[in-house]
Nucleic acid binder design. Sequence first.
DNA 1: CACTGGAAAATGCCGC
DNA 2: GCGGCATTTTCCAGTG
Lengths: 86, 86, 86, 86
Amino acid sequence: MPTGAAQAQLRSVVERIERLEEEKAAISADIKEVYAEAKGNGFDPKILRKVIRLRKVDPSERDEEQALLDVYMHALGMVPTEPAGS
Amino acid sequence: MPTGAAQAQLRSVVERIERLEEEKAAISADIKEVYAEAKGNGFDPKILRKVIRLRKVDPSERDEEQALLDVYMHALGMVPTEPAGS
Amino acid sequence: MPTGAAQAQLRSVVERIERLEEEKAAISADIKEVYAEAKGNGFDPKILRKVIRLRKVDPSERDEEQALLDVYMHALGMVPTEPAGS
Amino acid sequence: MPTGAAQAQLRSVVERIERLEEEKAAISADIKEVYAEAKGNGFDPKILRKVIRLRKVDPSERDEEQALLDVYMHALGMVPTEPAGS
DNA sequence: CACTGGAAAATGCCGC
DNA sequence: GCGGCATTTTCCAGTG
């Protein structure tokens, strides 16, 4: 393969990534700004983050947490024959 | 302040943040994809990341850190990575 | 300060850290071994990790989760007259 | 297999792992402490970490990576960090 | 053997 | 200004 082609490809890759990272950084800045603004309006950013985190994990937990709970109960020796939640 | 207003504000904040985080996640996925594609074309992702990181810090700072690193290495009796004969 | 002293100090620091990291690595290896052994006895390592993680977060959640719940209720518009904060 | 035996085994596994993780956390704390102390004595923790990382990878490998990095940097028109005159 | 997921490390921010 | 915390990024092991 011609070296020049590889070089062009490398430049392309690097530039694309850098471009995307810029966009990402911009979004991160926006998020930070929203938190700051919220803080200015009297909301506690830390708690805000927690709430948002909770909202994110809640849906995925629905099916997974249940299975995990069973295991956890096993570890404690509390194995009811049938899990209550249907 | 009316409680209702605070509530509306909170909802707005949370929704805006969640929206932004979605966008951010999408960009992250894009970046990952570019790395994967580059890897498929024979580029080493690890080195790629290193280059991109280096490009982010301005050269003077880079030199500065390097100088300090050299000092530490000397103090420890380490040879400061033989420069690849320019 | 005499350069020689700084050099000696640097060596000391580096050696102490490296020593500690060795110990840490040894412990990590032990942990891995326990997981491997458990797997050999029919336990699923992945689930095992999850249980252990759960056991770790549980205690801290006790007091914190409660406060969080309040906030979460706020987010849903269920605000009691007075905010708890001092 | 008797359930009771499995249960006992599980408890044993979990307890052993938790014990080891405690020890590991203690060591991590020690390491942090050494870094903090070193910083108090005028050493740059960031560079310190870099040196220690470098000492971990054997020199041949280090050179190899460096060579590849140089190739990439050249392809991108970056000057490969002027070596600090020996 | 590549990929996904999780653990560990490092960087940056926030509060004191 | 510094220490601590949270987030982010990187690395590695397990898995298909």
